[in-house]
Each structure stands twice: as C-alpha cells, then as structure tokens.
C-alpha cells in the first residue's frame, strides 16, 4: 500500500499532533464544550486516533469497530450534554490537522510521494466520514430514548404515507392529456 509511509509518519508524530489538536479544540469557538473535559481524557482520546492511525483506517474496521466505537461516542457525548454540532466540529478539526500534516509532506515533483498522499487522503476522509455518520446515529438514538424525539420519516408508517403522497403527485404530473374525440358525420369532422 502506497500510503503506508504517510500513515506511519502520523503515528510517529502522534504525541505532537495530539497536543496541537487538543489546543485547537480548546480554543476553537465551535468546540467550547471540550473545555469542560478533563485535559488528560481529551488528550488520550486524540492520541488514540493518531498513535493507532493504521489500525483505525483498516477497511474492515470501517464497517464494524469504527461504527460501534463512534455510535457509542455519540451516545456518550449526548449523556454529557454536548451539542452534536460541537462533536462533529471536533472530529473535523482533528481531520483537518491530520490532513495538513499529510499535505505538508508533499514533494511537488515526485509522483510517487503525491500518489502516497492522495491514497492516504482517501483513507483519512473515509474514516472521518464514517465517524461523523455514526456519531450522528448514536446521538439521534439517545434523542429518541431520552426525549422521545424521532424524525417523522424514520417511522415506517409515516415514510409509507410520504411515499404514497409522492406517487400521487407524480401521477398528476404524468397524467396523459385527454384529446378530444373525433366523430365523423357525413364527411364533416365534429369534436366530441
């Protein structure tokens, strides 16, 4: 795998990257809730992502363990009264710093090096896409459990009603135009 070298570089610099990401989360206006987390806990969470980056980027984990881990994170953040946009922003700030680090290692004249970066970016983006999606699912699950909130189109009967309403709207749009009937009376054409 081409991207291996870049991923190893992140793991080798995990401590420095974790410190930088932590500082960003603590000062960024979109992640103010993270100022209430114990600093060591926050650092450990970021360090876990950076130091075991190859572990988290593994494709099979993207389907199973990443899903479970980030669903649970969404639930946990909900229980600690974090707003969902803040949790998502924290994930994106982490991703952004990791991407800056990867992109900074580029040598504009080396196709091999650039290919490594492009491939690593694909893995990075896929991992954070999954993380954001599953954090949202976990958070929504807690909204339903704790506040009884469920989006109406999550409910099978309301989804079926909305689909039926759409079908009816489409029928109106695609209805065949009714042409006048032609009647022939002694060589004359009369519209029926």
């Amino acid at each position: 795998m081409l991207s291996k070298k870049i991923i190893q570089l992140i793991e080798a610099n995990a401590l420095q990257l974790s410190n930088e990401i932590q500082q960003r989360l603590l000062i960024h206006p979109s992640t103010t809730s993270y100022r209430d987390i114990d600093e060591k806990t926050l650092h450990d969470w970021i360090y876990d992502v950076c130091s075991r980056f190859s572990y988290w980027l593994n494709e099979d984990r993207a389907r199973g363990e990443v899903e479970q881990h980030y669903r649970n994170l969404g639930k946990e953040r909900f229980k600690k009264d974090f707003e969902l946009p803040q949790v998502i922003s924290a994930l994106y700030l982490t991703k952004r710093r990791l991407w800056e680090f990867m992109a900074a290692s580029r040598q504009a004249d080396s196709a091999l090096n650039l290919n490594q970066i492009v491939e690593a970016s694909f893995l990075l983006v896929r991992f954070f896409d999954h993380a954001v999606l599953h954090v949202t699912e976990g958070y929504e699950e807690m909204l339903q459990i704790e506040h009884g909130y469920e989006a109406s189109l999550s409910k099978p009967e309301q989804l079926a009603q909305a689909l039926e309403a759409k079908r009816q709207r489409e029928e109106l749009v695609y209805e065949e135009p009714k042409l006048p009937t032609l009647c022939f009376t002694k060589g004359m054409i009369r519209l029926g």
Partner: peptide, 13 residues
C-alpha cells in the same frame, strides 16, 4: 420536513 439527520449527512457524504 421530518428527515432523520444521519440520512441527510449520508447524502452530503
């Protein structure tokens, strides 16, 4: 409109 948020996020991704 009643869309679940994770499905909206999924569409953007």
């Amino acid at each position: 409109e009643g869309f679940p948020l994770h499905q909206v996020v999924h569409a953007l991704v």
